[in-house]
Design a protein around this nucleic acid. Structure first.
Length: 270
DNA sequence: CCCGGAACCTGAAGGC
DNA sequence: TGCCTTCAGGTTCCGG
């Protein structure tokens, strides 16, 4: 599912084709995909604007437009941005498309309709609901310790809360907890300082490794060229119920936490 | 503020 | 072969 590494991969691979290009039209194939307060002026505002920069914040992909204005995409669970020619047929489940001035087209494909796009005036509208970027320098072990210290909920649930840390989802929370040797059900504020340190570096390692392998394709995620990522091949526990733990050889278990599958090794994660 | 559960959504996969 | 259930999970909303 698109989490930080997948969105970052889309950003990197799409940027060379769209930064500096002008938007000819934005067409909407499934109207509820647009989710922001006003509504109508979207097409007019976007028309003929050039894209000055492509950014990422958490799981959000941000098209910066000339003269202010941000076109923001969220991939939900199954969203992809696929690059094609202006004349090509839209892939199945296309919810919106962006036609550019260089004969290219960007398709927003999303079978499960959890993804959306919105026009924002300012980045602050996103900042207000997002915690720190886990790969930036300001995400330190002591900051993580502070964030966790007020939470009694299971560490697995806390790690996927975007208000606390921006970009971690179900798969990478599981992978990080495995690398740190921490059981997903542990109350977040029960972690010892050494465990917080180890979790901090596990989160960074997991995300960096996945970006290196261009994200994980476990169901429908595809890169802009239509190819899958490879990060799932390196997963230790995520989506590997019943397979042997790479560290101890024991069987990986699945547990439901907050209605989300949590994969872990009961022998290595305490 | 914190917590946990429901709802949204639809295709794939597994069980019988 | 076909039907039914489970799984997948990011976000928002709501009640305690």
């Amino acid at each position: 599912m698109p989490e930080l590494p997948e969105v970052e991969t889309i950003r990197r691979e799409l940027a060379p084709f769209i930064v500096g290009r002008r938007i000819k039209t934005l067409s909407i194939d499934w109207p509820p995909v647009v989710r922001h307060k006003p509504g109508q002026e979207l097409h007019q505002y976007i028309q003929d604007k050039s894209i000055t920069r492509l950014r990422r914040r958490g799981k959000y992909l941000i098209f910066e437009l000339e003269d202010k204005g941000l076109l923001v995409f969220h991939m939900g669970m199954t969203g992809s941005l696929i690059l094609g020619k202006a004349a090509s047929e839209p892939p199945q489940y296309t919810r919106a498309r962006l036609i550019l001035d260089n004969g290219n087209q960007v398709f927003f494909r999303d079978p499960r309709k959890f993804g959306h796009l919105m026009l924002l005036g300012d980045i602050e509208e996103l900042e207000a609901r997002l915690g720190p970027e886990p790969l930036e320098d300001d995400f330190t072990p002591s900051l993580l310790a502070t964030l966790l210290s007020h939470r009694r909920a299971p560490i697995k649930a806390v790690l996927t809360d975007q208000h606390l840390i921006a970009g971690l989802g179900n798969m990478y929370a599981d992978e990080s907890l495995f690398l740190a040797g921490i059981h997903p059900s542990r109350p977040a504020n029960s972690l010892l300082p050494a465990e917080v340190d180890s979790l901090h570096s596990a989160i960074r390692r997991t995300l960096q490794e996945s970006i290196k392998h261009k994200g994980a394709t476990v169901s429908t995620y595809l890169r802009p060229d239509g190819k899958p990522g490879q990060a799932q091949e390196g997963f230790h526990v995520a989506h590997r119920k019943g397979e042997p733990c790479p560290r101890c050889g024991g069987s990986i278990q699945r547990l439901s936490i907050r209605d989300r599958g949590s994969y872990f090794c009961p022998h290595c994660q305490l």
